[in-house]
Design a protein around this nucleic acid. Structure first.
Lengths: 206, 206
DNA sequence: ACAAAAGTGTTTTTTATACACCCATGG
DNA sequence: CCATGGGTGTATAAAAAACACTTTTGT
């Protein structure tokens, strides 16, 4: 087969996790071991293997950093030929979500991502609004982010972190209540003022 | 470099054209010259060359069929490994739009696409709603489809063909009037009943 | 009793959808 | 002057956004 048509496809992952204690959505970055950009933080990425599914490649990329994601999805493809100094490649950006509450290493708040190598700044800038659009609308994404139970206060944080704007509590509560598979489940044992409402995902699936 | 990471990336194009005379949106298909599926109609596609931009690959694919498209965009990636009997490959689906009113060869109305080889049925089914969502919202896509001037009746046809449902004229006229860069420009010289309103794209760009 | 944190009811705005009726042309 | 095809105004419904006020807890 003509070698001219063989392409390097890298799968770069926006690996998110809701960090409840600090009230941030973290983007997990990978401290690169190898050149180019050795030592720099970058989106975790791998070169897709021949015949490998995108989800599998994304999973490998995540494993380099923190572990197996609870959910995965496709965002879009970046094709700028000069994006990688080693040579032309395509990059398929994917999102992935880790279970909440685990320790983080090279994680930064998604609201304050430092300059990244390759075209990763462009990827993050392009994809952040796409992630915000998934919240409350894509149940898989949302459930992975929130975990099985979460409070209205968590919802406020998640919305603020992804959209960059403060949601109105009244409207947000209604929006959350309208998400299929979510039911109110009493109030949460929180310190401070009035305890927030708790939401729990129904359905048998994990 | 590890050959295991070299992938065949095919760019498959949903190549559209508004056929004013028949009032249809046509999907241009390619009669395959080579196996697999020689002789069958399929989405025009090419294998992306190393370092080639997606738009360039899509352009090559279009040229196999009808000519240079006026606009191009990305839809999504399909990664089912068995999609091509020759071996695993990725397929990046793109849209492209040809200038209206030219002759068609292997074109079929988008509302009645016959069974296609590879995973092209899945691609078409997945992407049709995405195309419908572009109409009136993505000016590049819309302008390429309509051409520089078009009538409200054309707008009705385009909306019907892409969404599959009849739009309400009153609402559609308002929607079209709200598209940035479009201005009303008298009425069109049409036979039959009352002459329809004409719309013209402003701005200096082609 | 007060401050902090959250909840809920109501209004306003915007968008989408639907309906009804009027207008321009050709035979 | 009527059939055909199109236009526009208005009404209704649904969704989004904003506002105001009340409730629950800890101190």
């Amino acid at each position: 087969m003509n070698p001219d048509i063989l392409t390097v496809v890298s799968v770069d992952v926006l690996l998110l996790r809701y960090d409840r204690p600090t009230g941030r959505v973290l983007l997990h970055l990978d401290r690169r071991a190898l050149d180019p950009y050795a030592g720099r933080l970058a989106l975790p990425g791998v070169a897709a293997r021949t015949g490998e599914r995108l989800a599998s490649a994304a999973d490998r990329a995540c494993r380099k950093v923190e572990g197996t994601p609870r959910a995965l999805g496709q965002l879009r493809t970046f094709d700028e030929p000069s994006r990688d100094p080693r040579g032309a490649s395509l990059s398929i950006a994917m999102w992935a979500v880790l279970a909440p509450d685990e320790p983080a290493s090279g994680a930064v708040p998604i609201a304050g991502v430092p300059p990244l190598p390759f075209d990763h700044d462009i990827i993050v800038a392009t994809c952040r609004p796409m992630l915000a659009a998934l919240l409350w609308r894509d149940v898989t994404f949302t459930r992975a982010l929130t975990g099985d139970v979460f409070t209205s206060s968590d919802a406020v944080v998640l919305a603020r972190e992804l959209t960059g704007r403060d949601p109105h509590r009244a409207n947000l509560n209604r929006e959350v209540g309208a998400v299929p598979g979510l039911v109110a489940d009493g109030t949460a044992p929180t310190a401070g003022g009035r305890p927030p409402k708790q939401w729990r995902w129904t359905d048998a699936d994990a």
